[in-house]
Design a protein around this nucleic acid. Structure first.
Lengths: 234, 234
DNA sequence: GAGTGGTCTAGACCACGAG
DNA sequence: TCGTGGTCTAGACCACTCA
């Protein structure tokens, strides 16, 4: 494996371990080169890859900073939940249930855990302007996230990823999502206030830390009619 | 604008104009550097950006090649149209109608044309294993695509983008897509064989040439139940 | 074996930001 | 003004492909 890639992994590892924290500046490029005994161009290439991956952020003249990806309102990427004044709002969040379970085969598979390993299961309802819009089932490896179990909901707040970072030292840097459309169940329809024959969009998300180790799996679903998404590619 | 970026645009322009054709090798990096009077590292950086954009493809030891993006079966990215044996199939295509029209405001806006400019409008039906699965309305600037109007459908074949390339010299390199879910119209339901209260997924696609000039706009729609999509990001 | 891209190095100079 | 990242240059050596 080339030098610049090993250096990239080393730096990603330091971010995972919290040695470089989100918002903080890394040492200057020339300093990194000196620290790791590589040429400046090599350090630069390692940093460049991390920038392309979204882990770091360069600010010309200021430095290179650890980025904190903004997945918080990320369901806004998928659904049209505009405020009445067109403003972007952070949704209200209600944790309906919290429990520790043995991972099902599916969940263990997604999180790359041994079968039967303990996981935290959260069931959560999210509301925009008071209206229930999204249902979520969230699974977390117990060993990494056990502080979540006993935290007061008001301490957790409406967004989980900052809570993961503050209370469990876990940073989400990558996500993989799968989207499908199915009939709403009777329960879904009741909670989301849907009429008969309505459909829901399901978003299955696997969230990973800076070293690309899976740390959360969740399924969210909301009214299909409100779904809207944009892709660019080549 | 930095040198390597101007060089990138120059090369992208040559691909647009057909001076470098899909599948063909570019001159070697050192040769490009010599041709354009830049340092090898600068040529390399220009090429690197084009590779990241998907316009070029490097093969170690062999050369750098113009890539032909594969948007042909691209609706397979969105819908579960597996063959009965799980094989990937090219769908059958039927052009239902072909006409020359004045661009509506919406179409002119998408294609960045003056209002009222002439466009070709194709209405197309796509079938997988004989079953109608996708309806498409396709809009093309008449000036660039006029040969399409008179071509026999058997000459065009089941895939449009190769036809654009062969008969109109137009290469599609980038696409932008927007996805939403709506009720099926009665017509849609009849053609796609949907039951009552079914929904469709709409995919609005803007296709661009290597210089990112819009050259096609289309709206496709198919049964929501069959929709399935995967995203990675950070 | 000849030619290609891939890695790594070294250093000069510029443009930007923050104090 | 100083330190940062951004650009551009130059060249050595390696790894791979292909005839």
């Amino acid at each position: 494996m080339p030098l610049y890639r090993r250096l990239r992994e080393t730096i990603a590892g330091k971010i995972t371990k919290g040695e470089y924290k989100p918002g903080e500046a890394l040492p200057a490029e020339v300093e990194i080169a000196r620290l790791y005994n590589v040429a400046p161009g090599t350090a630069r290439k390692a940093i460049e890859e991390l920038v392309n991956e979204g882990l770091l952020e360069r600010r010309h003249g200021a430095g290179t900073f650890v980025r904190r990806p903004n997945f918080n309102n990320s369901m806004l990427r998928f659904f049209l939940f505009r405020g009445t004044k067109g403003k972007t709002l952070t949704p209200e969040s209600r944790i309906v249930s919290r429990s520790v379970e043995s991972a099902s085969e599916a969940v263990a598979g997604h999180l790359n855990l041994p079968p039967g390993e303990k996981v935290i299961h959260l069931n959560r309802l999210r509301l925009w302007e008071g209206a229930p819009r999204l249902l979520e089932d969230i699974y977390l490896p117990f060993t990494l996230f056990h502080p979540i179990i006993d935290l007061d909901e008001s301490v957790i707040g409406p967004l989980l990823y900052p809570a993961y970072e503050i209370h469990c030292g876990q940073l989400v840097s990558f996500v993989k999502e799968e989207i499908s459309v199915t009939d709403a169940t009777a329960d879904d329809a009741a909670i989301l206030g849907l009429g008969a024959h309505e459909m829901v969009v399901n978003i299955d998300r696997l969230a990973m830390n800076p070293s690309r180790i899976p740390i959360e799996w969740r399924r969210s679903h909301g009214e299909a009619r409100r779904f809207h998404y944009q892709v660019d590619f080549s």
